[in-house]
Simulated assay, not measured.
Amino acid sequence: MRGPSSALLRAAWGAVLTLGAGAVGGAVFSVLGLPAAWISGALVFTIALAVAGVPVAVPEWARFLAYTVLGTSMGTVLTPDMLARAGSWPVSMACLAASVVGTMAGGALFLTRVGGWSVETAFYASAPGAFSTVLAMAEETRADLRKVAFAQTLRLFLLVAALPNVLGATGLSGGGFHPPPHVSPVWDLAILFVVSALAGLAAAALKVPGGLILGALAGSATLHIGGWSDAVVPPALLLPAFVVLGAGVGARFLGTSLSALRSYFWVSLGAFLVALTVATMCALLAAWLTGDDLGKLLTAFSPGALEAMTALGFAMGYDPAFMSAHHLFRFAGLSVALPVAAHLLFRIERRVEDDHSP
């Protein structure tokens, strides 16, 4: 006879299988040197299981821990020194803001008019970066999370895979940068995580879109901006969080057919090309106005995930403060503006639907 214990065992086995496959996928992609390896590898391997009909699932406690770690890590980038440096690049920041608006508008227009995607799905799928935050926000709406995840992942994958090669072939890449290692004391990390977790829970309780990750980011950022902490999240904690994020998104593809994935690919590729064109035009404008290095601006304006694109800029030899400031500016702007824009846009959409309903 099947009872609660058998259901718990099935759920536990599904979680072990999903996270195990995600970890293997992340490790394989990392060994192969592929971009955003631990997220994309976990995503691809989990999608393969989901499309094959394997009952994949990620438990809520794992999502909570992963979102807390990711939000905490992103908040550590916000330091008084970085914010002071960010104020010295007003022209490039303005061009970046125009790039974010343009890429979202162009991508969303393409996805709705050409791909036939819903407004909510196109809105989140076209957001240029802030991958984990966008997914957390989209999860609480009527958006098709599978399409959002696929479009976001494909854009990040293509950017990180192609950008270094393109800039290297054109002689625009920098000379390499290796940041000094920083090992945080266990006590400092414990305080950082407690504050970030409490802030995440508070934001979630207030029904803030993506509250767990945004609240954790805010808690971490408050400590770092105030000078009360300089702790950073070690890779040993970040990598499992990336796996959980990738596997959790991949589990959403359960029941999706290969034909649907093929249709997602071509539409997402078209939206990516639109976004890349807009970002390149804005980077060219910024280079003309400031006389700054075009390769550095292209990397800073690339509409990819905060951590992946910032790390890529460091590895390519560009000023780490410049990279951090611009990608964080884009990320922070998206984190603040997305909930507001979503509320206004979707309220207007619902009013239009009500007006046309019989």
Results as ranks from 00 to 15, higher is better:
2 R>V: 06
7 A>N: 14
7 A>Q: 15
10 R>G: 07
17 L>T: 13
29 F>H: 04
38 W>L: 02
39 I>P: 06
59 P>K: 02
66 A>P: 15
74 M>F: 00
75 G>D: 03
82 M>F: 06
83 L>M: 13
85 R>F: 07
86 A>P: 03
87 G>W: 09
93 M>P: 09
94 A>W: 03
99 S>Q: 06
106 G>R: 10
112 T>L: 02
118 S>N: 05
133 T>W: 10
133 T>P: 04
135 L>G: 07
150 F>E: 05
151 A>P: 15
163 L>Q: 10
165 N>Q: 15
169 A>D: 11
172 L>D: 11
172 L>I: 07
172 L>M: 14
174 G>C: 04
177 F>L: 05
183 V>F: 02
185 P>Y: 00
185 P>K: 04
193 F>L: 08
196 S>R: 08
201 L>E: 06
204 A>F: 11
209 P>V: 04
220 S>E: 02
229 S>P: 12
240 P>S: 00
242 F>S: 02
245 L>M: 06
245 L>F: 06
247 A>T: 09
260 A>E: 14
262 R>E: 12
268 S>L: 07
279 A>D: 10
279 A>Q: 12
286 A>H: 09
287 A>K: 13
293 D>V: 00
304 G>F: 11
313 G>E: 05
315 A>G: 07
327 H>F: 14
328 L>G: 00
333 G>T: 11
334 L>V: 07
334 L>Y: 05
338 L>M: 15
343 H>I: 08
348 I>C: 08
352 V>A: 11
354 D>E: 15
357 S>K: 12
